[in-house]
């Protein structure tokens, strides 16, 4: 079943008086349960594509379909609700809430989603990413790899159908990077999570089901 589909997706920015075309008509389709890598040189539109499919930004033109539903013109409140309930995000910079403990970082999206058993679920997720013994630590007390694992646990909090990761290993050493990708693979295989990951690394990309190559704002065939 097709979970993400884009049709003639375009995004352009104004840089002073100059129009920069970040995406120039992207047609793509991702199946439910796929683990897909988006690759390409810097500035080719990988992150822009991820931001648009993650409803963090709005396209200049074209359509985005999630689970067959056109979400292109949803208002900001509806997009926020959709992101909360159906999407998980992992960014390159670990982006945890510094004032919250590891456990609270993972609990927070569940509290927003008004889930009842959020404490148990947070512990369960942190055990899953191997941080069951770091529940009450602050992010500043963890290594980069550990922080990224907390981010992954947080992204899974509301059992999202789609996990979007923008260079999740970009700031990690090789050992930590492999650990994170193995974790993604495990989630993909055991929980059927659809994962779309932007990466520069061919090695990391090679560990996924499929690679979509971008160049100059379009998909390279």
């Amino acid at each position: 079943m097709e979970i993400i589909k884009t049709s003639n997706l375009k995004k352009s920015y104004m840089l002073g008086n100059v129009e920069v075309k970040a995406l120039n008509g992207v047609d793509t389709s991702i199946e439910q349960g796929e683990f897909v890598a988006i690759m390409g040189p810097s500035g080719c539109g990988k992150s822009t594509f991820l931001n648009l499919t993650g409803m963090l930004d709005t396209p200049t033109s074209g359509e985005i379909y999630l689970e067959g539903k056109d979400v292109t013109n949803m208002n900001s409140n509806m997009r926020a609700e959709y992101r909360l309930k159906y999407m998980g995000f992992v960014f390159q910079f670990f982006n945890l809430f510094n004032e919250l403990t590891v456990m609270e970082n993972v609990m927070f999206p569940m509290m927003l989603n008004k889930r009842s058993n959020y404490k148990e679920r947070a512990k369960e997720l942190l055990n899953l990413v191997g941080l069951g013994d770091r529940l009450n630590h602050l992010p500043s007390e963890l290594s980069g790899g550990q922080q990224q694992r907390v981010t992954i646990a947080r992204s899974l909090a509301n059992d999202p159908k789609i996990l979007l990761a923008d260079e999740p290993t970009g700031n990690l050493d090789t050992a930590s990077s492999i650990e994170i990708i193995e974790l993604f693979r495990k989630l993909n295989q055991e929980q059927g999570q659809t994962i779309v990951m932007v990466t520069h690394s061919p090695e990391i990309g090679g560990m996924t089901d499929r690679i979509i190559h971008f160049r100059d704002g379009t998909i390279e065939h």
């Binding site: 993650g54 963090l56 900001s76 409140n77 926020a80 609700e81 959709y82 992101r83 909360l84 309930k85 999407m87 995000f89 960014f91 910079f93 982006n95 809430f97 510094n98 927070f108 999206p109 927003l112 989603n113 947080r154 992204s155 509301n158």
Partner: peptide, 16 residues
């Protein structure tokens, strides 16, 4: 600012 961006990315509204 970045944390506010992340908070929005995980699904909080402007009103929140």
């Amino acid at each position: 600012k970045r944390q506010i961006g992340i908070m929005k990315a995980i699904g909080t509204s402007n009103a929140f």
